[in-house]
């Protein structure tokens, strides 16, 4: 029997512009997360870049139940490559659409 994977999505804001569509930057972020979460937890969480609506916002997907652990790991990421960076989790949701809507609302407000 094949079970449907239940995912959670996290809207994250970066204090500096980063381009995660660039493979090097994404690998560097995932490497940091694996280090902070522990490799086993990282592979169980199955963290992926789901979307990057702008250069300071991105959406990560992960398996349900690992949100807290990823949120904490993102708090401790302070350097990507040579750049000093701060990552802030803005919202968690079960659908990517609601996060895109939340992002659209944020950009309208600011």
């Amino acid at each position: 029997m094949i079970y449907r994977r239940k995912l959670r999505y996290l809207l994250v804001e970066s204090s500096m512009p980063i381009d995660l569509r660039n493979r090097g930057a994404e690998d560097s972020l995932m490497h940091e997360l694996a280090k902070l979460m522990g490799e086993l937890e990282y592979f169980r969480a199955n963290v992926r870049l789901a979307a990057q609506p702008s250069d300071t916002f991105f959406i990560l997907s992960l398996n349900r139940g690992y949100e807290q652990s990823l949120t904490l790991a993102l708090t401790f990421v302070k350097k990507l490559g040579e750049k000093q960076i701060g990552l802030r989790t803005i919202r968690t949701s079960g659908t990517i659409k609601s996060l895109k809507d939340a992002y659209a609302k944020l950009t309208r407000l600011s």
Binding site: S15, M16, Q68, T71, L72, L74, T75, K78, Q84, I85, G86, R88, T89, I90, T92
Partner: peptide, 15 residues
């Protein structure tokens, strides 16, 4: 003291 060190309420609850 810096922008990088600011965090969301969700992250503070995690800490």
């Amino acid at each position: 003291e810096r922008q990088e060190c600011l965090m969301s309420a969700q992250q503070m609850l995690g800490i």
